[in-house]
Design a protein around this nucleic acid. Structure first.
Length: 608
DNA sequence: ATTAGGG
DNA sequence: CCCTAAT
């Protein structure tokens, strides 16, 4: 209840005077039962928005008489009329008081519900329908972002206009409407606020602006709560406690995440830099608020989302490795809750999920160069973590405790099975594996205060704005009892076992060494190349060398203008092409003596 | 474990 | 760089 009140209050922090709106008779309004209104809440919202559209139009007409610029008539009309504020708040709170239970939430429309439902409504609706207005063909767009307040107002408006009670106007100038501010969750950047305006255009070339909500963002997931690890089932029954009716956690594959996400947008470099390290809990209302939206208010998110933060600080001397862990995160956490869930319950769901994870015990994995170090007996230097050679590539992962692995879900808790589908019971369900967490550690070279960029910071530049590896909360419109687990269908793309390695561009020196080796050994002997010229560079695998050669050949084949990155001397590129050409015609003999560079150059002819 | 090639 | 198939 408190949560809902809070939401509503936030919705209503701009007041709306309702006194000038004629109301339908009480008898009519009373006909709308609580359940009806809940079921028809979307319609109610839209009708209210319709009303607002009409009001806006009227205001616009008013404005149009004195100003030719009517673009923002709607908003201006709202903002210029302040004196009738207040009453709607009382009405809305009254509605709250009359709602029977928090779960019904008939009038306390949640943020999620608002946005999703408005998304559903989408465009193409006639905002004037139901208002008795003659206008037609309004292009009515609703895009996600901030329809919240309208909805809130809508309920009140709706209450007054049930049964299509005729209004919203002998003298439109008497209308005094204050435009409610859109309600946004913390961290939503301005771009979404800016784009969240709704444009209502009619045939008169005049239009007003509302808030928009994209209708393509309707995808919802079946509520479920699952936990995953290593292709083996990991069920945390604790996660269900208190969440099985209103929330869920599910691991999803990365592709699925994209379904309800805004198309990527460019962000400032600063945001890019921070993207990965700042990623955290994100509220996603089916396209409304996405993870990449949360790129500001860093400090706050640090405290909110750093599940384990400021964990370790180590110092070093001599040959010791020193590093610090800024934070440990749980980025791949998926949570689904019904759209009727309140923000408060959403928070609780996340909290329970995280708590369950921690309470059930986790183990720490160590990755070096993105590769898991399995042998606990290895020394850091043995794992290639000599700071002299490897800078900033020590990583940690949070994993489920080993005792949690290998448990098929079918033998678990009945909650885990779909209660309505007995055939499913016989299937073996697995919870998708996913990155429970990962972190980057700073490895500082001995005798140096120079910090190596965080792995995440570096890779952030490589990431698209809608990059993965973040927690996301989506909202589902499905029934709470549709609790389901995720059948294991496919191998997860990447788990903590195989974190992507940091990108480390080859230096010219390395390129030269590579060219020298290939000239001598030929292509196809990458292991030998590795051993010959890169044995001490543990982060360069023979596959890396092979790949680099491939890109070198490509680079040498394109025009200099098309090349990127640190320029490779043309002389080297020429040698690359020469070697490539030569070894294409002279496959290195297996176990045979290798051709040396002199021979190659000779046989390549004068064109070299 | 290596190599080759597509992504 | 990653992933996978083929050796």
């Amino acid at each position: 209840m408190h949560d809902r009140e809070m939401v509503v209050k936030r919705m209503l922090y701009s007041d709306f005077d309702f006194s000038s709106f004629p109301k339908a008779p009480r008898s009519i309004r009373r006909k709308v039962s609580s359940s009806q209104r809940r079921d028809d809440v979307d319609c109610g919202m839209m009708r209210a928005i319709d009303l607002l559209a009409y009001v806006a139009e009227k205001l616009q007409e008013e404005e149009g008489e004195t100003s030719s610029n009517s673009i923002n008539a709607f908003e201006e009309g709202y903002y210029n009329q302040n004196r009738l504020a207040g009453k709607i708040k009382q009405e809305h709170q009254a509605n709250l008081a009359s709602s029977k239970s928090p779960s019904e939430n008939a009038s306390g429309v949640s943020l999620e519900q608002t946005q999703v439902s408005d998304c559903k409504r989408g465009r193409g609706l006639n905002p004037l329908a139901g208002c008795g207005n003659k206008k037609e063909d309004c292009d009515f767009h609703v895009e996600s972002g901030g329809v919240t307040v309208e909805t809130c107002v809508v309920n009140n408006v709706d209450a007054g206009l049930e049964d299509g009670g005729l209004i919203s106007l002998k003298d439109p100038s008497q209308l005094h409407v204050q435009c409610p501010e859109p309600v946004h969750l913390d961290g939503v950047p301005n771009e979404y606020r800016n784009r969240s305006k709704l444009v209502c255009r009619d045939d008169d070339e005049s239009y007003c602006e509302y808030y928009k909500c994209k209708d393509k963002c309707n995808k919802s997931y079946s509520p479920s709560l699952t936990w995953a690890g290593h292709r083996r089932a990991v069920h945390r029954s604790k996660c269900f406690e208190g969440t099985k009716t209103d929330g869920s956690v599910k691991a999803l594959d990365r592709k699925r995440k994209l379904c309800c996400r805004y198309s990527p947008r460019k962000h400032e470099t600063l945001h890019k830099k921070r993207r990965l390290s700042d990623k955290g809990l994100v509220v996603n209302s089916d396209g409304g608020i996405t993870s990449e939206s949360v790129t500001n208010s860093t400090e706050k998110r640090e405290s909110e989302n750093g599940v384990l933060s400021d964990a370790i600080g180590l110092h070093s001397e001599d040959s010791r490795v020193k590093f610090s862990i800024k934070s440990l995160r749980i980025p791949e956490l998926f949570i689904e809750v019904p759209e009727t869930a309140t923000v408060g319950s959403l928070k609780r769901t996340v909290m329970e999920a995280v708590s369950a994870l921690l309470d059930d015990g986790i183990s720490i994995g160590v990755t070096v160069q993105g590769r898991k170090v399995r042998d606990d007996n290895n020394t850091l230097s043995q794992t290639g973590l000599s700071c002299r050679e490897n800078l900033g590539n020590l990583g940690f992962t949070l994993e489920p405790g080993p005792e949690k692995l290998g448990v098929p879900l079918s033998s678990e808790n009945p909650v885990m099975s779909k209660p309505t589908d007995s055939t499913k019971l016989s299937e073996r369900y697995y919870i998708r594996s996913f990155d429970l967490a990962r972190s980057a550690a700073n490895c500082v070279e001995n005798n140096s205060q120079e910090l190596v960029p965080y792995q995440m910071d570096i890779s952030a530049d490589e990431q698209q704005p809608s990059s993965d590896s973040r927690a996301m909360v989506s909202v589902s419109a499905l029934e709470p009892e549709a609790l389901a687990i995720v059948p294991f269908k496919e191998k997860p793309k990447r788990t903590e076992l195989s974190q992507r390695r940091i990108r480390r561009p080859f230096s010219v020196t390395e390129v030269e060494a590579l060219v020298n080796a290939v000239e001598e050994l030929g292509t196809g002997r990458w292991r030998d190349v590795k051993l010959r010229s890169f044995e001490n560079e543990s982060h360069r695998t023979y596959v890396d060398l092979k790949d680099k050669w491939k890109t070198l050949v490509h680079t040498a084949s394109i025009s200099p203008q098309q090349r990127r990155g640190e320029p490779v001397p043309q002389e080297l590129l020429d040698r690359v092409l020469a070697s490539h050409r030569y070894w294409s015609q002279h496959p290195p003999k297996q176990n045979g003596k290798h051709q040396d560079a002199a021979t190659m150059v000779t046989e390549s002819g004068p064109s070299m």
